[in-house]
Amino acid sequence: MSNLLEVHSVSKKFGEFTALNNVSISVPKGSIFGLLGPNGAGKTTLIRVINQITMPDQGHVLLDSEPLQSYHVKDIGYLPEERGLYKSMKVGEQALYLAQLKGMEKREAKKRLKMWFERLEIGDWWNKKIQELSKGMAQKIQFVVTVLHEPKLLIFDEPFSGFDPINANLIKDEILRLRDEGATVIFSTHRMESVEELCDHIALIHKSNKVLDGNLMDIKRNYKTNTYEIGIESLNNTNLEQELKSKFQVSPAEFKTLGDELKVHIKLSQNETANDLLSYLTTKGQVSHFVEVVPSANDIFIQTVKNN
């Protein structure tokens, strides 16, 4: 799979402050790429470099194997975290203006806007002013404006903030649909459950450096500790716990079940397999729960940030 976007060792300083230090990322075509990191890590600066808002001190960016040029702005749709619209302008006029700034023909822009407004059921807003709309409503319009010119690369910075769950779902489905239609999505957020749900690749930026990147599943495989979450019913739970502790690395676990099982995490060493453990356990009692502990994006995020 080829990469739509490649960032090659980009550095950016603001006076004494280093915002990005030698950061490289590759975003595969057709992927949803999660750009993660704590507040102030440098995500926004990186996104601005990709949008040619900020010029990097060093390094370069390739879009579709070409160095970034000013005409590339029409290939990118950007929804910034700090976003707004002209308060006293009408919705339709404003959307048309922004679409034309992205190089669209007025007539074409109008046609597509009508279509999008129908799809998101906001058709009757055309002649309203932004100041008459709620925050969530304005966000919907911003989303439409971002994707209207059908760019190859979509960059969303915290796209779901300000949306109620229903509209957040609506937007999520639209993002997935756009991906299926061939767009590549960069997605910056702090909400790990949406990373889990949407992203297939991630990069983690911390204190101006990239500390982790790759396919989310591969990363999870690297981060898994060969630990299993187990629920087992026996005649004497205390005895069984003692026995397990003598054989394995055991720690208490908590999850909800119907019965009164012994609940533990068992960490296996390199040469033990899950099957070995399971067959051993079946001799000790009734196994009601047996799950491999897969690290969540949240765990990986916290662990990586703490270790650095």
Partner: peptide
């Protein structure tokens, strides 16, 4: 100042210089 406070500025300068 209006463009700054309404925060539309970043959207616009991702399109024009």
């Amino acid at each position: 100042i209006e463009e700054k406070t309404s925060r539309i500025i970043e959207v616009i300068i991702s399109s024009v210089k």
